[in-house]
Write a protein that binds this DNA or RNA. Structure first.
Length: 603
DNA sequence: CTTAGGG
DNA sequence: CCCTAAG
């Protein structure tokens, strides 16, 4: 693995402009898929194929698996008759034939981290203490506040303390399962490993894909799927779980962690057409800076109209309006750790993601007066002491989870407590993002997350006071984000559905570009199955990628064919290796021909 | 539910 | 990606 120099950017606070309601809703219409994808998300996604980048080298070294060999098999008639053979047969020598997974990396699964030292690589995301409430948190690293890295310095996103719920989905695969020979056996082995959650031993390597749950082709297996998906997202974890060191608990943790793994990269802003930015929901809560209590009227001016302001004015007092102008909300300091080789686009996305991590959806505003949270929504401004005279020194706003129920700190469940300072020990549970069966949803529980200093509590929160405590708190609210140098394209966006709304509330699915790995998997599957069996292709190579429907695959193939035909200059997006495109054309030509033959001479 | 294609 | 006619 190449060590890449990383650049660190630190944002001491991130200004989040107050966005007029009208400006959001990027995608207003479109209908959300009416039918739910029945496939379930699997935390353990196996990459059955190798990234295109690795293909060349591997293919050349292993005659048995060379593309040419396979193609010979595929495109020279012999295999045609088997077109509709049983699936088992199809697994033979195709998907896994291309290259070997020698380049697999290991997912840095929270909870596994530090436990499996034998894992070759632990690339992935690592979040300290933040999320993973309850489940599996016991396995979180307890190291104090630092970013922990495994091996390479890449692909690590570490949110320190404040942000929660983001973990990288670990796509792992046992190397054994991708051995050159006996693919089927390997497959079984793989499944077995997955099923048993690495009972087989610590030698299981995990292949990770920084992408979401997407990229990859995996060892699809229904049994696995069932297993993985069976436990309800909210299945309570055994609180009295045995020490993490036990394989079993580790496995469980692993499963759970994986289940809740959520790519940091998922954005969740733009969705809902008609919702306000602030009610999006967040993974954590932030404290923000409130500028002026009374400023000239600006479009941002907030008069006494909000919940608080709507209250009746204190009887007897002159009803004067309090005008507030929140120029921007400030997000806690963000640390970005990104390779020098990363692109500007990557940096932007990284920052976006970091911000998104902090400002999720379903947020609501909290009011702080003189550092204390004003909990009574029914009080009037004047009753509360917010009036023109207050100026800015006493009023503060903060973003917090919508249903911020602060529960007594459960040190057992919240890893965060292990590393937090007393002030940071704020409720931070149920923050994990999870995949719900059939849909990419963020756990609703995620709304419980908060950023330390922003927690509900009477800690001296922030606020507007431009000095001391605010700064201190701010410094604690940092998010350190490391980003992989590559594959940023794979950072897909995930649709976030409003918890309140009808999930099926028409919404166009977010665009999730295919990664090279996915393309590779698709190509391989199509080479083997042909272009008219998308259902099978899906099952074969994208079985666990619930967000990839067979229609998507068909569409992707269509675009791949198109892409392969146009000049490289005209191509956009993450470049697809020419080798793959060549295969696309070859396969396309081959299967088109087959189709013709079939039509002309059905029998 | 799948395919196949146009949008 | 979406929408849909067809099978």
């Amino acid at each position: 693995m190449v060590m890449q120099k990383r650049l660190n950017y630190s944002f001491d606070g991130y200004q989040v402009p107050v966005i007029p309601r009208a400006s959001r809703s990027a995608r207003g219409k479109g209908s959300i898929r009416k039918k739910r994808d029945n496939s379930h998300i699997h935390a353990f996604e196996i990459l059955a194929s190798v990234a295109g980048n690795f293909l060349h080298a591997n293919e050349s070294s292993n005659p048995e698996n060379t593309a040419s060999a396979k193609e010979a098999d595929l495109f020279h008639g012999n295999d045609v008759k088997k077109k509709h053979d049983d699936e088992a047969g199809l697994f033979k020598g195709d998907l896994f034939a291309h290259g070997t997974c020698s380049e697999v990396t290991t997912a840095c699964v929270p909870g596994l981290q530090g436990e499996h030292d034998n894992q070759r690589t632990m690339d992935g995301l690592s979040f300290h203490g933040s999320h993973l409430e309850g489940q599996g948190q016991n396995v979180l690293e307890k190291e104090e506040g630092g970013l922990k890295r495994r091996n390479s310095n890449e692909k690590i996103i570490h949110i320190k303390g404040n942000s929660e719920g983001f973990t990288e989905p670990g796509h792992k695969v046992s190397k054994d399962c991708i051995s050159d020979n006996n693919v089927e056996k390997s497959l079984l082995e793989c499944r077995k490993n997955l099923d048993s959650s690495s009972h087989g031993g610590s030698t299981v390597r995990k292949l990770v894909n920084r992408d979401d749950d997407e990229n990859f082709a995996r060892c699809t297996q229904s049994s696995l799927r069932n297993k993985m998906s069976s436990p309800p997202p909210d299945t309570p974890k055994p609180k009295d779980a045995s020490p993490i060191t036990s394989d079993e608990s580790r496995d469980n943790s692993e499963l759970e962690n994986l289940q809740r793994m959520y790519p940091f990269k998922k954005r969740k802003f733009f969705n809902q057409t008609s919702s306000s930015t602030s009610d999006r929901g967040s993974h954590c809560q932030g404290v923000f800076d409130f500028s002026d209590t009374k400023v000239n009227s600006t479009i941002h001016a907030i008069e006494e109209s909000s919940s608080i302001a709507d209250q009746q004015v204190h009887p007897g007092s002159k009803s004067c309006n309090v005008k507030l102008s929140i120029k921007s909300f400030k997000v806690p300091e963000l640390f970005i750790d990104i390779p020098e080789t990363a692109t500007i686009g990557s940096l932007k996305r990284t920052v976006m993601e970091a911000v998104t991590a902090i400002l999720g959806d379903e947020l609501h505003v909290g009011i702080l007066l003189q550092g204390k949270k004003v909990r009574d929504d029914n009080k009037t401004l004047i009753q509360t002491g917010i009036c023109q005279d207050d100026k800015r020194h006493r009023l503060g706003f903060m973003l917090e989870p919508r249903h911020s129920r602060i529960s007594p700190p459960s040190y057992n469940e919240d890893p965060c407590y292990l590393t937090s300072t007393p002030q940071q020990k704020l409720s931070r549970k149920s923050t994990s993002l999870m995949f719900q069966q059939g849909t990419y949803n963020v756990s609703q529980e995620r709304s419980l997350i908060k950023i330390e200093s922003c927690a509900e509590g009477d800690i001296n929160m922030v606020s507007s006071v431009p000095d001391t405590s605010a700064n201190n708190n701010m410094s604690k609210c940092r998010a350190l984000v490391a980003v992989p140098a590559i594959n940023m394209e794979a950072l897909a966006v995930v649709p976030l559905r409003r918890k309140s709304g009808n999930p099926d509330f028409g919404q166009r699915r977010i665009r999730r570009p295919f990664s090279v790995l996915e393309v590779e998997a698709l190509v391989q599957a199509v080479e083997k199955l042909g272009t008219g069996r998308w259902r099978d292709v899906k099952q074969r190579a994208f079985d666990h990628a619930k967000h990839r429907t067979y229609v998507d695959l068909k569409d992707k193939w269509k675009t791949l064919v198109h892409t392969a035909r146009i000049s490289p200059q005209q191509r956009r997006g993450e470049p697809v290796p020419q080798e793959l495109l060549d295969r696309v054309l070859a396969a396309h030509a081959y299967w088109s021909q087959q189709q013709c033959k079939h039509q002309l001479k059905p029998r």
